[in-house]
Amino acid sequence: MKKEAIKSTYKSNDTEEWLDRVWTRPIGYLWALFFKRLHVHPNVVTVLSMLIGASSAFFFAHGSYRTEGTEGLWYNLIAVVLLAWANFYDSTDGQLARMTGQKTRLGRILDGAASEVWFIPIYLSLVYRFYCHHELEFSWLGIADTPVNAGIATLVLLGIVLYSGFVCHSRQCGLADYYRQIHLFFLKGVSGSELDNSVQQQKLYDATPWKGNVLWKLFLKTYVNYTRTQEAQTPAFQRLMKGLKAKYKGVEDIPSSFRGKFRALSLPLMKWTNILTFNTRALVLYATCLLDFPWLYFCFEIVVMGALCRYMRHCHEKFCQQLFLKL
């Protein structure tokens, strides 16, 4: 397997994480070759990724060795394998699309939704897991292990999990993905990125009739909201883009010198976008579940990942404002 052949399926060297280069992409490439031979469309691979990732929730719902012994450990190991497998397919779909030229707007929307489809059932399964196995935490806090107390504690955890998932996880991953696409736009231009905006997506949504397109309309509406959330978090970048469009006839006319300057400022942040997407998040999830303290994962997501996301956003907005003032 030639390294150059695998590299040809990257989005770019700038946006690739070390673990992806040595592990995820090579395996994803082999799967891409397999699906290519079978003439499987990349969107089908994305759907398979969603199904496999979501199925891991059943196995994560079980306690691990500390609370369920060897059987629980095996359940959790199966969960880890399934989620890792789903991530391989999440890499495969993009690699297959670049390999075959089968890029579609639906594929972009599905790819962005994949992690949500994985993590929503996983997060809810971990709430159920806490309800079943909370004895040690209650003993630490001196709480009597009664059905009422267990119900109250589980509801509190559910509130934390909903905040962690829909506020922290969703926005962290969405912003990291947006910064990657911005970087690719200045590196490769419109054709080399998937930098969408809410105005474009709203027009497409409005122009699509409901008749015969109900599912597609729902996908588009979700994507409109997704892009609006990204734009709301990046006011300095939005000003910069408006300034560039006003100064130059079109975004493709932005001079290479400016693109190079933007890339140099954006490149150091790519490591944070990688941390905020899957690998680091998954490794912490695996560790906390195998140790039988899955609630620690949500503390990590809210506190640590939240701080990294705020830092990344601060740095990006700061240099975008500086570039805007120099236009």
Rank of each mutant, 00 (worst) to 15 (best):
Val148Ala: 13
Leu126Gly: 05
Gly151Met: 10
Gly142Trp: 01
Pro121Trp: 02
Ala114Ser: 13
Val148Gln: 08
Leu106Cys: 09
Gly151Val: 05
Glu137Val: 14
Gly112Asn: 13
Phe119Asn: 06
Phe138Arg: 02
Gly151Thr: 06
Cys132Arg: 02
Thr104Asp: 03
Trp140Cys: 12
Val127Ser: 11
His134Leu: 04
Gly107Gln: 04
Pro147Ser: 06
Pro121Ser: 08
Ser125Cys: 04
Ala113Trp: 00
Tyr123Val: 07
Gly107Glu: 04
Trp118Glu: 08
Ile122Pro: 09
Glu135Gly: 12
Ile122Arg: 03
Ala113Glu: 04
Leu141Tyr: 00
Asp111Gln: 11
Leu106Tyr: 02
Glu116Thr: 09
Leu126Val: 07
Ile143His: 04
Glu135Gln: 10
Val148Thr: 10
Asp145Gly: 12
Val148Asn: 04
His134Pro: 02
Ser139Glu: 09
Gly151Lys: 00
Ser139Gly: 03
Thr146Pro: 04
Glu116Lys: 06
Gly112Pro: 02
Pro147Ala: 10
Trp118His: 14
Gly142Leu: 06
Asp145Ala: 15
Val148His: 02
Arg108Asp: 15
Ala144Lys: 01
Ala144Cys: 09
Trp140Leu: 15
Thr104Ser: 14
Tyr131Pro: 08
Phe138Pro: 06
Arg108Phe: 11
Tyr131Asp: 08
Cys132Ile: 01
Gly112Asp: 07
Ala144Met: 07
Arg108Glu: 15
Asp145Val: 13
Ser125Phe: 01
Phe130Gln: 09
Val127Ile: 13
Gly112Ser: 12
Ser115Tyr: 11
Trp118Ile: 09
Cys132Trp: 00
Pro147Asp: 06
Leu106Arg: 03
Leu106Thr: 11
Val117Gly: 12
Leu126Asn: 08
Trp140Ser: 10
Ala144Leu: 11
Ala150Phe: 00
Ile122Val: 15
Trp118Gly: 09
Leu126Met: 12
Ala114Phe: 01
Val148Gly: 08
Phe138Ser: 07
Ser125Lys: 00
Tyr131Ser: 14
Ala144Tyr: 00
Leu106Pro: 05
Asn149Tyr: 01
Asn149Leu: 06
Arg105Val: 14
Pro147Lys: 01
Tyr123Ser: 15
Glu135His: 04
Gly107Ser: 11
Glu116Met: 14
Gly142Asp: 03
Ile109Leu: 12
Tyr128Leu: 12
Gly142Glu: 05
